[in-house]
């Protein structure tokens, strides 16, 4: 689906394992928007864990060895380390082995077609602290033997910020990780619908949602709690967070979801979240 109103272009596409993505760009050309879409696909090809030939998969396969990495992968690995520190370790890119153990061993599209190839889930003791198993240097990186990295939503948040900052007035949504910039098409802000059905109008901001209600398969979901190395048991079904960038919002949403509704508000406030909305099975109310 694609549409254009004057110089405002709205383009919808699918990427990141079947996720709905869209760009609304004001005062832009079709070529500008095409470049954004092409870059999203290139990012996915290079950093997906579901293709053994991707740079990320080759990096994980070489665990234990110091590997030359592209500036893109090096930057994303550093962002993962930053996310770990910022979230008190709740957002941990080293969750990949636990995620695979939980059944997420193929793309979500394939997983929904049939059961996991995993015979049984073996719970791990915990997920290792990321700074202990990941080193990043100038042009190289190394992950410890037995460990593997999944960029997850952090990658999408980073990319949404990166692509949106090419425009003065645009919004980019990469599978729920939203970055807005500028006054919006009617100069009254960007209205972004949150997980509880309400919406928030923002200027320069990031909005992201995390929870256990998406990327589900029989017996599991994609949100791993690094403290237990198992799919999170949280009282939050979904939480949307508004922060300064999509990356911040993604980190905060995931961390808050893992902490649970009781602690989420103070945890988010301490980290500068502008506002948030929660959907939980018990209360089904907005915060």
């Amino acid at each position: 689906m694609s549409g254009s109103t004057g110089t405002d272009i709205h383009h919808v596409f699918t990427a990141f394992g079947g996720a709905r993505c869209e760009i609304i760009a004001c005062d832009a050309t079709e070529g500008d928007v095409s470049a954004v879409v092409a870059d999203a696909y290139a990012f996915e090809r290079q950093l997906t864990r579901f293709d053994a030939g991707s740079e990320l998969s080759r990096f994980n396969a070489a665990a234990g060895a110091r590997v030359s990495v592209s500036p893109l992968l090096a930057e994303l690995l550093c962002v993962c380390l930053d996310a770990y520190a910022f979230s008190d370790g709740l957002v941990n890119a080293a969750c990949l082995p636990a995620l695979v153990d939980a059944g997420y061993d193929r793309s979500i599209t394939e997983l929904r077609r049939g059961p996991s190839t995993r015979v049984q889930w073996r719970p791990r003791k915990d997920v290792p602290a990321l700074p202990l198993v990941l080193e990043v240097g100038e042009g190289w990186a190394r992950v410890a033997p037995g460990c593997a990295i999944d960029l997850g939503g952090v990658g999408k948040g980073w990319l949404a910020d990166c692509l949106c900052e090419r425009f003065d007035n645009a919004a980019i949504n990469l599978g729920g990780d939203v970055r807005t910039r500028g006054p919006g098409p009617r100069r009254s802000g960007w209205a972004v619908a949150l997980c509880d059905g309400r919406f928030v109008t923002v200027g320069d901001a990031g909005v992201a949602t995390s929870g256990t209600s998406g990327r589900l398969w029989p017996g599991g979901h994609h949100l791993i709690d690094p403290r237990t190395a198992a799919p999170a048991r949280t009282d939050i079904t979904a939480i949307s967070v508004v922060a300064q960038t999509a990356l911040h919002a993604e980190i905060l949403a995931k961390g808050a979801c893992l902490i649970g509704e009781g602690m989420a508000r103070s945890w988010l406030e301490q980290r500068g979240a502008a506002c948030h909305a929660v959907v939980s099975p018990a209360t089904d109310r907005a915060a």
Binding site: R166, A191, V192, A193, D204
Partner: peptide
């Protein structure tokens, strides 16, 4: 958009919108 590092973080801006405003974009679990 200058590409020049500022070292400063921006504050997310939440603005008031008319009651007739419809969401332009959705965030969701993915």
């Amino acid at each position: 958009g200058s590409g020049v590092a500022t070292g400063q973080s921006i504050a997310p801006s939440v603005v008031a919108a008319p009651a007739s405003t419809q969401p332009l974009i959705n965030t969701y679990v993915s």
